[in-house]
């Protein structure tokens, strides 16, 4: 068994999942690949399995946060030392997985997050999305005292301690983004942001449609507020 697991959360990604898995196989041949299928109604699970990934199936759709936490629980239970997380829609370039994993494997950091804004030819999100990202970028940077340019990025890599921490109830399953970074910082984990290439979402599917962006803003602000109101000891107890 490899010491690294690449986690792909997937919901109705049958069209592109095999390509993503193939690219990951090429980019990090030594790593195992896990697809957590979040109750897809298409052939995501069978195609991922055929492409050589381990597949976990949610009985029904539970959302992005729950899906990635299932992956963390699997990785922790199966003794993996490192975990890299990449989206199943092909937006994240698998060539950067190794670069995200490098500082984690060296022991320099516990948690590495990929930023599309630090890489010169990543795509630029829509204006409203950029506004949201800008808001949370400023907020996170002020709170944790370190520059984070892309707090909403789902392209990440981390070690076993973070895996264990994220497998507890402390993990914010409802859109884990900026509040997760603040929680990690409060718990004393070392975070580093690295440049990664991200492509535009060709499928057009997004987690942030309809009134969801408004709910997202509300939820994230509330979550950050209560995170800050909690005692630091609260996070230590979860480790």
């Amino acid at each position: 068994m490899a010491d690294t697991l690449v986690l792909i959360p997937a919901f109705n990604e049958a069209d592109g999942i095999a390509t993503v898995i193939d690219s990951i196989h090429k980019a990090v041949p030594d790593a195992d690949i896990l697809v957590v299928n979040d109750g897809s109604r298409d052939e995501t699970a069978s195609r991922a399995k055929a492409a050589g990934a381990v597949v976990l199936n949610h009985a029904f759709n539970m959302g992005y946060g729950v899906t990635i936490q299932t992956g963390y629980k699997y990785a922790y239970a199966h003794g993996y030392e490192y975990l890299a997380q990449i989206d199943g829609d092909g937006q994240h370039d698998p060539a950067f997985i190794a670069e995200l994993l490098a500082p984690v494997k060296n022991g320099d950091v516990d948690f590495a997050i990929g930023s599309r804004f630090l890489w010169f030819d990543s795509y630029r999100p829509s204006f409203t999305r950029r506004l949201g990202i800008l808001f949370f970028r400023k907020l996170v940077t002020v709170i944790i005292g370190r520059s984070i340019t892309d707090p909403t990025s789902g392209f990440q890599a981390f070690n076993r301690s973070v895996m264990k921490f994220f497998s507890t109830d402390i993990f914010p399953c409802d859109y884990p983004d900026a509040d997760m970074l603040i929680t990690l910082n409060l718990a004393g984990f070392r975070i580093r942001e690295l440049p990664v290439r991200m492509f535009a979402n060709v499928s057009g599917k997004t987690m942030h449609s309809g009134i969801k962006p408004l709910y997202y803003m509300f939820k994230m602000c509330l979550s950050i507020l209560v995170t800050l109101l909690r005692n630091r000891q609260f996070y230590r107890r979860q480790m």
């Binding site: 957590v36 597949v55 949610h58 299932t70």
Partner: peptide
């Protein structure tokens, strides 16, 4: 909601 989440995750892991 938390209990359903835990059950779905446990179910996925055990089914595998």
């Amino acid at each position: 909601t938390d209990q359903v989440k835990d059950l779905v995750q446990e179910n996925a892991l055990l089914r595998y």
